[in-house]
């Protein structure tokens, strides 16, 4: 369509290369396990948020089931390694497989419900996952959880230390985000947002909503579950706290602040949500107060998120030019 890169496109490419370069050398810049740990959880939560964005921002499905998939993924990898004697990699693949099946089996009936009913059903799913983790003691070891997860091994070498683990996480995050980017910018993404905007109109144009919704619900379940599986090896322990609402709330904040339906908005917000609380450490007493105030201000000034705010500015200037 357009030949060459527009100014915005070139700036985006430059920003992505810069961000990747910084991330790639991050372990060389700091030896702090704490900072690398912050980066690891930030990357994984950004991936989970980007998966939520596919379901919520593109297909219009406000799914709290992501929290369930995140925790189920963590348990899958932990059980594969500790009880079945599998490797970390096998654990992540098992998490992908189990979450794929779970996404299909749970999504098929529940995607027939709409709006509030859908939200309630997905919350129930997450609560049920938590309940199973707590009470199916023979498999999950109940509230005690599964401690002592060993570091992953690659080609016979133990990937010991935060720096090496960080590269695994970075690799997974880049792969998952690339997949989502390619998917969301394809015609599939265009169709998804059409279904979100007006489902009856989409149907009148020959589009079957259910297969699209089921596909993205399942894809998001797999990506979130794999992120949870990796996250378990960051924590080195999995217990029912993996289903803490804190995680879901973080995914949601990232998506809403970034702008629902915007890939770059959500990735940016993911980075900001990691950097911000750390940058505010200069004041330990007021840290969370300031963090909260910034979130409230962001929502008041940009109710449709950063990406929505930019879009509104663009439309306003377009209108001004036309009239």
């Amino acid at each position: 369509m357009k030949s060459g890169l527009s100014g915005v496109g070139a700036a985006k490419v430059a920003a992505v290369i810069l961000a990747l370069a910084i991330l790639a050398v991050l372990p060389l810049l700091t030896s702090s396990n704490y900072l690398l740990g912050v980066a690891v959880s930030g990357l994984l939560m950004t991936v989970a948020a980007a998966a939520l964005n596919l379901v919520y921002g593109f297909a219009g499905l406000l799914s709290f089931a992501q929290l369930g998939f995140w925790g189920v993924g963590a348990y899958c990898s932990a059980i594969t390694v500790m009880d079945a004697g599998g490797s970390f990699w096998a654990g992540v693949l098992v998490a992908a497989g189990v979450n794929g099946l779970l996404g299909l089996a749970f999504g098929y009936p529940i995607l027939r419900t709409r709006t509030h009913a859908f939200v309630v059903a997905t919350i129930t799913f997450a609560l049920l996952c938590n309940l199973v983790a707590r009470d199916w003691i023979s498999v999950t070891r109940g509230p005690l959880g599964i401690p002592g997860l060993p570091p992953p091994r690659l080609l016979g070498y133990e990937i010991e230390g935060s720096a090496r683990f960080f590269y695994i996480v970075l690799g997974y995050a880049v792969l998952a985000l690339c997949f989502l980017y390619v998917l969301e910018t394809s015609r599939i993404g265009l169709t998804l947002k059409a279904i979100k905007q007006n489902e009856t109109l989409a149907q009148s144009q020959g589009i079957s909503p259910l297969p699209y919704k089921l596909a993205v619900f399942t894809i998001a379940a797999v990506i979130t579950g794999m992120a949870g599986a990796v996250f378990a090896f960051h924590l080195r322990v999995v217990d029912p706290l993996i289903f803490d609402f804190y995680y879901m709330q973080t995914f949601l904040i990232i998506v809403i602040i970034g702008g629902t339906g915007s890939f770059w908005g959500v990735v940016l917000a993911g980075a900001a949500m990691v950097v911000l609380p750390e940058a505010l450490r200069f004041s330990n007493d007021l840290r969370m107060v300031i963090y909260g105030a910034i979130l409230v201000a962001a929502m008041l000034l940009m109710p449709r998120g950063v990406a929505g705010w930019i879009e509104d500015r663009r439309l306003a200037s377009l209108r001004a030019n036309l009239r």
Partner: peptide, 12 residues
């Protein structure tokens, strides 16, 4: 589809 361009409205 309000957020889509005229062209995108047809390409859907």
């Amino acid at each position: 589809y309000d957020t889509y361009t005229v062209l995108e409205n047809l390409l859907v």
